[in-house]
Amino acid sequence: MKGRTVLITGAGSGIGAVCAQRLARDGAQLVLVGRRREPLEDVAARTGGLVLCGDAASSTDWARFIPAIRERFGGLDGVIANAGGHGLGSASETSDEDWQAAMRANLDSAFYTARASLPLLVQQRGALVLMASIAALAAGEGVCGYTTAKHALLGLTRSLARDYGPQGVRVNAICPGWVRTPMADAEMQPLMERHGEDLEAAYARVTAEVPLRRPAKPEEIASVCRFLLSDEASIITGANLVADGGSSIVDVPTLAFGRI
């Protein structure tokens, strides 16, 4: 990755911030995109790079981001479309505003990022990674907007890979399961309150049936991103790489037999 320029959305915290740290150690030049300037500046203090504060789901913001990237680096070798958000509630509990917010945070942000950065990626024959989820493969309870948007991300991945592969651009998705990030820590709070347990016990509860029996570290997902951006993945495009500790391979209807 030495000397390559990589753009990361949602770069101020969680997986995005750890991706930035990993790629900086490998010698990459970074473009850090996010809505909150202070976290981005904190990451940039450790990794260097260009901070661009704005909304990844805004074509207006991309209209000012791209010239800044061209001026600073000339092009892009890689993009990690990591920005995302929630989409809680069943369909009947999801208002118009909730639905639109879920699509904007999880799908529109990836589409606008891809559309804006593709000319630069074509120029460099670069690679694009979309951050999906195992919610792109199966449905959890009461997360209609999130599940739908993440499923759509796989369709977007395949469409982009099909259309831009002939121009040398590779496009892949990553489907993590639970990852220990501040967002996931917050999602553990209801379990902690309900069962009177600490954070470690809550994570143990949600990964009890996961073959590896633990959540991922953000550094592990960053390593997958780095691989997909690198020449080591030069023949891989249109794929969704599952990084979930094995949770998506579990045959749920047979779980009861393991408790006999």
Rank of each mutant, 00 (worst) to 15 (best):
T157I: 01
G142V: 13
R226T: 03
H86Y: 08
R158A: 08
F73I: 01
C225G: 06
V250K: 05
I8F: 06
A28R: 12
A101K: 15
I66E: 09
A132W: 03
D251W: 13
C144Q: 13
G85K: 04
R25N: 12
E193V: 03
I260W: 08
T94F: 10
S109K: 13
A173P: 08
L76Q: 04
W99L: 03
Q29N: 11
R46K: 15
P211D: 04
V18D: 14
C144S: 15
D98T: 03
A44C: 14
L255E: 02
N82R: 08
L154Y: 07
D42K: 15
L121E: 01
I69G: 00
S59G: 07
I249T: 15
A63S: 14
L229V: 14
A136M: 06
V206A: 05
L156W: 06
G238M: 02
D26L: 13
V51E: 02
A110D: 09
F257T: 07
R22S: 10
R205Y: 08
A102Q: 13
C175I: 04
G12H: 08
S234E: 11
V206N: 04
A11L: 06
S117P: 08
A68K: 14
V129I: 03
L228S: 07
S133E: 05
A20P: 14
F257I: 01
A17C: 09
G78Y: 02
P218H: 10
E97C: 01
D251Y: 13
L32I: 07
R115V: 03
E220R: 12
Q189I: 15
H151I: 01
G27P: 05
P67N: 04
L228M: 10
L107E: 08
G177Y: 04
S117T: 15
A63C: 03
A44L: 05
T181R: 11
S95R: 11
L241H: 09
S13K: 12
G54A: 03
L107K: 11
G85I: 07
T9M: 05
G177N: 02
Q21K: 15
V129D: 03
R213A: 09
L128V: 01
D98P: 00
S59N: 04
R158W: 05
I69P: 02
S109C: 11
S159Q: 13
Y146F: 14
T60V: 08
E141W: 07
G34V: 02
G84C: 00
